[in-house]
């Protein structure tokens, strides 16, 4: 018998982080820039939800508004930080020597390890929306590392496409895996976690699908564990979802 939780879009934590006032040293782009963050799990001022899921500690649906909107260069340790750009353009700069512009469909995983630093910036008028995912690593103080990839929705449509982690082209130092399903037609897609000790967090980016019988709309999500498979059913309208598998 599998277990699950359902998190509706409106029930996530909501924060607006200004580039003025007490958060000015953290968020750049003064005076007009601000970040909106919708957290699936407890993070920062939002502490009334779930603590995390398996190795996932942060799952933030973030929008950088107005040119110059950024997280200033800041230190990190140990967490594996992944960003999946959904719209707009993100400039990601880190101290392993990367300075990348990421467009919709692009993603990266930055393992901050023993103390990598990074900055995230939107220099354009168009808002930048990305999913930020933080995972605990399998070792502390690994050498910082960075990988990036691109999800081509058209080429990968109507199947579950691994993006990061086990069985994907881009490895991460954790027993976790991120996949994406972009569907354009009715279908039944079965996701099989590597063991019943792995949980799956399904987050709908856009559209509607049924996840193990639960209808999930845009930005709704469901976590499932003690399951040998997770069934995603899609309809005529396009649907887009991220699947994060993690050891529990």
């Amino acid at each position: 018998m599998s277990n699950s939780f359902i998190l509706r879009a409106a029930d996530r934590g909501h924060e607006t982080i200004l580039s003025t006032g007490p958060t000015a040293s953290y968020v750049g782009g003064h005076p007009d820039a601000f970040i909106t963050r919708q957290s699936s799990f407890n993070f920062h001022d939002y502490q009334s939800g779930r603590a995390g899921f398996g190795r996932i500690r942060v799952f933030g649906d973030e929008t950088f508004n107005n040119p110059g909107c950024s997280y200033n260069m800041h230190p990190h340790h140990n967490f594996i930080i992944c960003a999946f750009v959904l719209s707009g353009r993100l400039q990601h700069i880190n101290t392993t020597g990367n300075n990348d512009e990421l467009l919709a469909g692009d993603y990266y995983a930055f393992s901050a390890g023993s103390g990598g630093l990074h900055t995230e910036i939107n220099v354009h008028r168009e808002p930048m929306n990305a999913i930020y995912l933080w995972m605990l690593p399998d070792h502390l103080y690994l050498p910082p590392s960075y990988v990036r990839g691109r999800f081509d929705a058209e080429a990968s449509a109507n199947r579950i496409k691994p993006l990061l982690g086990a069985d994907a082209a881009l490895p991460i130092p954790q027993d976790a895996k991120v996949s994406r399903l972009f569907s354009t037609k009715p279908g039944r897609h079965v996701y099989r976690p590597r063991s019943s000790g792995h949980g799956v967090y399904c987050f709908v980016i856009d559209g509607t699908l049924a996840c193990d019988g639960t209808t999930l709309g845009s930005r709704d999500s469901k976590g499932i564990w003690n399951a040998t498979e997770v069934v995603l059913e899609t309809g005529d309208a396009p649907a887009d979802a991220l699947l994060v598998e993690t050891i529990l």
Binding site: Q47, H74, N78, S114, L136, D138, L142, P143
Partner: peptide, 22 residues
């Protein structure tokens, strides 16, 4: 000391160190 997060939002972990670390 790096980000100002209060003590009560730390989590105890049993993650081992990478080779060459403490």
């Amino acid at each position: 000391p790096d980000c100002g997060t209060p003590k009560h939002l730390f989590e105890m972990v049993e993650i081992p160190y990478a080779p060459g670390q403490p």
